[in-house]
Simulated assay, not measured.
Amino acid sequence: MGVAIRRAGESDREYVVGLLDAAFMQDPVSSWVLPGDEYRLRTHGALMGAFFDIALDEGYVDITEDGAAVAMWWSVPAGGHGDDGVHEGEAEGAEDGPVLLRRAVDPDNERVELIGRLTDAIHPTDRPHQYLHLIAVHPDRQGEGLGTALVSAVLDRCDREGLHAYLEASNARSRDLYTRLGFAFMGAALDLPDGPRMWPMWREPRTAGADG
């Protein structure tokens, strides 16, 4: 039986942000960006909310019909969004994405801006692609293949339309899962300063009749 998936909208914001907040509260990258349990409890939801807003503006959010899993994608054109995350066509002198993210989450936390700059620096810009930014599955529904179904639905479209895909795996387990879905480690990991490692991964579209 297939997994029913729909496109989330602004009306889903509170629910999706809550699911992402719970799923990533103890994630190594979230713990590095927002150090300290009490501080992270206060601010993590704002970070997830900012990511949701960017996804609606720059891409899309897919959610299973039962609300058990969600995947956040950004559609990145060739050339990315200009230097330091500034979109093509923005006015000269406009503040860039990492600065705006820091302001939205916590202006006093430089790591909110730094994570944006570091991931921007390793993000491929030579070809348009679908960027899997975040994916979360409700704790009670782990192991049912919901996350794989969400990702595979987009990857099937990438294969049909000749689109590339990109992500940063934040742990070895997810890296191995994405490898099975056709992603390949790009060769240079991102080691956050005094923090965890992230693995940038790229996927070429599969042509009809390709193995796997």
Rank of each mutant, 00 (worst) to 15 (best):
A91V: 07
L34V: 03
S75P: 01
D83V: 11
V99C: 05
T125K: 15
D83L: 10
T43A: 04
I135N: 00
D96S: 15
R6Y: 06
R141H: 15
P128I: 11
W199A: 05
V76P: 04
L163Q: 15
D57N: 09
L192G: 13
A23Q: 07
D140R: 14
D120I: 02
D194P: 02
A149G: 08
P107R: 09
A189H: 06
E95H: 02
D194C: 06
H138E: 13
F183C: 09
A188W: 03
L118W: 07
L146S: 01
V29S: 01
V29K: 00
L167A: 12
A121C: 07
Q26F: 11
D84C: 03
A208N: 12
D12E: 10
W73V: 10
L155H: 04
G145R: 02
A22L: 14
G80H: 04
H81N: 12
G67M: 05
A136D: 06
A172W: 05
D106G: 04
D27V: 10
M48I: 00
R160L: 12
M201H: 08
E92W: 08
M198W: 04
L192K: 03
E110T: 11
L100Q: 08
G145Q: 03
D57F: 01
D211L: 14
A149T: 09
M198T: 12
G9W: 02
V154F: 00
D21S: 08
D57W: 00
I122P: 03
Q142V: 10
L167V: 12
P124S: 10
H123Y: 05
Y178C: 13
A136C: 08
A189M: 04
V16M: 02
D120S: 04
F183P: 03
G212H: 14
V70Q: 03
S152C: 02
H138L: 07
E110S: 13
D37H: 02
V3T: 15
D156N: 14
W202T: 12
R180L: 14
G80Y: 01
V154C: 14
G82E: 08
D176P: 00
R206C: 11
L192Y: 10
L34E: 06
G45M: 01
L155K: 02
P193G: 15
D27R: 06
P77H: 11
V105G: 06
A184D: 11
A149W: 06
A78N: 06
E88K: 09
S75G: 04
F51H: 07
